[in-house]
């Protein structure tokens, strides 16, 4: 990780000095363990603040929407796929961007690590393979692969798909990953069990919209939950309204979601919100052979069609 960081800083500093970009978007060290804060650097001096480690799970493409200046952005695999999506949806121009690609070995799951310890964690550090967790009266070394975010475990696009310069060598992508085991499990349930399953996972939702807002895909000027004429979804924490929100949020990401996991990471209640979006990801792959954010030349699946698309569900 440290060699990543020095390279990131070197590139960023050069870009700013040569005035190739006006701003670098990256992360700075967080104030609590396992958190980094997205930040910008406009001067070579500010570049010193940048960090890169296994706590950079927030998707930086979210910070590009409708920006006008020339931007240098640090992008891991999923960020780069969302940058592609942003470009094809005209939320940013390719020419505006200098993409500093970072091949990613996965981000760690702070909820999971927190739940492994009774006492509060005060410090988390890492080396290539391990995560070292320290708290009052304990210190434990965890294998990083065991505590990755769920989406990182099954990620098959760890390398950035577009970039202008790499901060580290490309990795060998994971192969033979079963990405949709959990989705298949739910698909196999009886309708009543499915209903109850989702009732259960959504019961803690406080409608804070962190999942929506952490998502780079959610940039509508007025979100459907804020529409009032007509009002499609109520604003209370009524379970039907909560479910409608989650349903439509996911559906709105259909064919666009890169499973970056920012939504799940952002949820203050630890709700597995990816359960919805993954189903759409699976269907897009099975029905239309589509994975989001891999190419600048193809239209997303709901913006195109083939005359022979599957239609066995239509009478």
């Amino acid at each position: 990780m440290s060699e990543y960081l020095s390279k990131i800083k070197e590139i960023s500093e050069r870009l700013l000095k040569e005035e190739k970009v006006e701003i670098i978007i990256g992360f700075r060290k967080g104030t609590v363990p396992m958190m980094n804060e997205p930040c910008f650097a406009k001067t070579p001096e500010q570049v010193k603040e940048l960090v890169w480690d296994s706590n950079c799970g927030i998707n930086l493409a979210n910070y590009l929407t409708d920006r006008k200046e020339k931007i240098g952005i640090i992008a891991k695999g999923c960020d780069s796929r969302n940058i592609v999506t942003h470009i094809i949806e005209n939320k940013i121009k390719r020419e505006q961007l200098f993409i500093i690609g970072v091949s990613c070995k996965g981000m760690i799951d702070k909820n999971k690590i927190t739940s492994m310890f009774e006492n509060e964690i005060n410090e988390v550090s890492e080396d290539e393979e391990n995560i070292i967790v320290k708290g009052e009266g304990f210190e434990k070394t965890l294998n990083k692969n065991d505590v990755l975010q769920e989406n990182c475990k099954i990620c098959v696009h760890r390398n950035p798909v577009i970039y202008d310069e790499l901060a580290a060598d490309l990795l060998v992508e994971q192969k033979d990953v079963d990405r949709y085991e959990d989705v298949r499990k739910i698909e196999a349930m009886a309708p009543e069990d499915k209903w109850n399953y989702f009732d259960d996972i959504l019961s803690d939702c406080i409608r804070c919209y962190a999942c929506r807002n952490a998502c780079p895909l959610c940039y509508c000027p007025t979100c459907f939950v804020d529409e009032s004429r007509p009002q499609w979804v109520g604003k209370s924490i009524d379970p039907v309204d909560t479910r409608t929100f989650h349903f439509l949020r996911a559906y709105h990401c259909a064919g666009r979601c890169t499973d970056c996991g920012a939504c799940e990471r952002a949820c203050p209640m630890g709700i597995k919100v990816r359960t919805f979006t993954k189903k759409l990801g699976k269907d897009c792959l099975e029905l239309y052979g589509w994975e989001a954010g891999l190419s600048l030349d193809e239209r997303p699946p709901l913006d195109t069609y083939r005359p022979d698309d599957p239609e066995d569900f239509i009478k």
């Binding site: 109850n196 559906y251 259909a254 919805f276 189903k279 029905l287 709901l302 069609y305 569900f313 239509i314």
Partner: peptide, 22 residues
Amino acid sequence: NYYARRKFALFKNLIEYMGIEP
């Protein structure tokens, strides 16, 4: 209707996945 067909396919799968009976 070509565009709609794709939307419907995904929608039907998702709503059934969520627990509405086929």
